[in-house]
Computed example of a mutant assay.
Amino acid sequence: MPKTWFITGASKGFGLEWAEAALERGDQVAVTSRSASAFDDLVAKYGDAVLPLRLDVADRAAAFEAVQEAVDEFGGLDVVINNAGYGLFGMTEEVTEQQAREQIDVNLFGALWVTQAVLPHLRARGSGHIIQVSSIGGVVSLPGLGLYHASKFALEGFTASLAAEVKDFGIKVTLVEPAGYATGWAGPSAVQAQHLPAYDDFRAAMTRISARRGDPSATRAAILTLVDTEQPPLRIFFGAGPLDMVTKEYQARLDEWRKWDDVSKLAFGA
């Protein structure tokens, strides 16, 4: 049975790939971007199956208006994907107040506002699937991306709570945690803090996880499988490598907690 989607940040990258995948199989899609004209090609190809919407996800009132417009146009929503976001690159000391606030506004609050806007509609239908596009950076942290990690760790935290809160309403919730893909996230879409010379040596010595980047189009089959699954997972990685990385990260955390367990218990009076 055809589904109706609402996808933020759909003018490029994952959002565009997933919108096209849905449309190609006969679904309806409300696509959002800061410029609705970004979807002219989609509208020309798929006609009334596409609803282009201009939306700055950091604007809560605008998020509610866009969701209502999509519901009015299509009669309801089945899949909601909070994909809008970007990376802020800079050491913690380098990031300005405005850069920090804008990163959280888009990556965290943008997803929160859209989620709040769709919940009454999904509850009324007794169904729906909310997909939050997180990142491997929502599970592990690297230097030079602290505020980006903060936004994604926070997204993971509220989404885990959300999943428990709405389960009894028939609403499914999933965190998609992609590895590195050639989406422009680290290129044209990124924001760079001004470099402080004090970190130049450290920056030069930094090693990247991998120079390899996945093909965003390869995620089409995966996202369709996910939305068609009767019991989707709360968390799923997209890409090769994240499971090994996270296994090492969590083992290191457990080892450190165990090493300091005596002090932990001392703090409790044990």
Rank of each mutant, 00 (worst) to 15 (best):
F158E: 01
T96L: 14
E102L: 11
R123G: 00
A111Q: 15
A117P: 14
G75E: 13
F158R: 02
F89A: 15
V114Y: 02
Q132S: 12
A150E: 13
A111S: 15
V139K: 15
F109N: 07
N83E: 13
T115I: 12
H121I: 06
L155K: 02
G87P: 07
S135M: 00
H129P: 01
A117H: 01
V139Y: 14
S134W: 11
D105R: 04
P120M: 02
S151Y: 08
V133A: 12
S135V: 08
A124M: 02
I104S: 06
T159S: 13
G87F: 06
N82E: 12
A150M: 05
H121Y: 13
V139C: 00
T159L: 09
E94N: 09
D78V: 05
E94A: 12
F74W: 15
H129Y: 08
F109T: 11
G87L: 09
I104E: 01
R125A: 15
L147W: 06
G110R: 08
S127V: 00
T159W: 03
D78I: 02
F153E: 04
A154Q: 03
F74K: 12
V95K: 07
T96Y: 12
T92I: 14
P143R: 12
A111W: 09
A100V: 00
S161T: 15
G126Q: 05
V95L: 08
H129S: 02
G146V: 05
H149W: 06
W113R: 07
F74P: 08
Y86V: 11
M91R: 15
S135K: 11
F89E: 10
P143M: 12
F158K: 00
D78S: 11
F158T: 00
V133H: 01
A160Y: 03
L77N: 02
Y86T: 14
S134G: 08
H149S: 14
D105K: 01
V106N: 06
G138Y: 09
F153L: 07
L108R: 09
I136T: 10
Q98S: 12
F74E: 07
S141R: 07
A154L: 04
G87Q: 12
M91V: 11
R123K: 11
V80Q: 01
T115C: 08
N82P: 07
G75T: 03
G76W: 04
N82K: 03
V118R: 01
G126A: 10
S135A: 05
V118W: 07
P120T: 13
R123Q: 12
Q99T: 10
T159K: 01
H129Q: 02
L122M: 06
Q116P: 11
R125E: 05
V95I: 12
Q116H: 13
F153D: 03
V140C: 01
L145M: 11
F109H: 05
H149Y: 06
